[in-house]
Design a binder for these strands. Structure first.
Lengths: 184, 184
DNA sequence: GATCACGTGTTGATTTTTCAACAAGTGTTT
DNA sequence: AAACACTTGTTGAAAAATCAACACGTGATC
């Protein structure tokens, strides 16, 4: 993709998130964004149809960025390293995800995250044919909710334990399932 | 001027100065600048004919930025407030001016600063017709050298005193001249 | 009710930046 | 000497961003 597009979208999103933290979604105008980002107002409309679309794309982007750190491990196995790098990334971008998980995200972020993770979990479990009994939805939603619950708790409480600890705890809790469902 | 031009030139100059601090003028390539600034190589050539031109424009720009703080006071009088804001600006952009005043500036920065200040001093003195006796150059170069000497000392010694102190000292030293030469 | 200030979303012409390709120069390695 | 990697400076077509203007809507103020 053209560098200008990447830079411009990045700039608009950053500016938008800053304004979101400052004054909340309703009070933000397209003018605000353009002025602070020092770009033409028309440029915003070149990339996003309106303010809501911008929020959507923001959420989509940051869900993807988060899950990239989780899913970029080569195999589909549940690995400590993947969780570790995910929580590291979360720690680095704490303020953004705190914001998106708060009321300002209107729950959209959580929903999107949930849907994407549930889909991945479904695929991972489905890989082993003998997992038929677990593909009925209960397992998937149990694991997805559990993971997101931990993630939300960790962010909303301003990271009460460090990355290593949260990773180990999570791996410990998932151990029974990693063995039966997804181990190679 | 078009916003894109301003932003691009600012980006190129910032990147160039960072590289200057890291590896020195000779070792910098246009490729380096383009890659780190994340812009197309051709864009650099769109604004600067080559590396030397870029250094020139950098020096010109930062001399102007510095002197704007000195000269934007409404009257041509020598005012403590003007010096104060100048040294404040210097303090804020310490690393840049330390770099430009060091060997990396090849003395070009000092020369350019000298020429511009001398010109201003000439004008200021020339305003009062009875100053004919002082327009022979000695006064001008004495004052210019004095001011730049103070400035260089302050920067090269990493600002050994605060802005308020350096301003007061300078005003004290200039007092005999402000009275006779430039007071209203 | 009229006016005023402000925000929205769109348009078309213009300018800037990108991209890929080119020819040429330099120094290093084989 | 030839091959190689790297940098330079330039080109033209394509894409993106700018700008100024437009019509429209809203809410506050007189």
């Amino acid at each position: 993709m053209d560098r200008r597009i990447q830079k411009t979208r990045q700039l608009i999103m950053n500016t938008f998130l800053n304004l979101l933290a400052e004054k909340g979604f309703e009070k933000i105008t397209i003018n605000d964004i353009a002025k602070r980002a020092n770009i033409n107002r028309g440029t915003v409309y070149l990339h996003y149809v309106d303010k809501s679309d911008l929020l959507d794309k923001c959420i989509e982007t940051y869900v993807e960025l988060l899950l990239n750190h989780c899913a970029n491990s080569d195999d589909t196995n549940l690995k400590a390293s993947a969780f570790h790098s995910t929580f590291e990334y979360l720690e680095k971008n704490f303020t953004i995800y705190k914001l998106l998980l708060s009321n300002e995200g209107f729950g959209f972020f959580r929903n999107r995250l949930y849907a994407t993770i549930a889909q991945t979990v479904t695929q991972v479990i489905g890989i082993k044919p003998e997992n038929n009994a677990f593909s009925n939805g209960v397992t998937i939603h149990f694991l997805t909710s559990g993971f997101i619950g931990v993630l939300e708790w960790w962010i909303n409480n301003s990271m009460p334990c460090n990355v290593q600890e949260i990773t180990e705890q999570l791996m410990f809790l998932l151990e029974p399932y990693t063995k039966h469902l997804v181990s190679l």
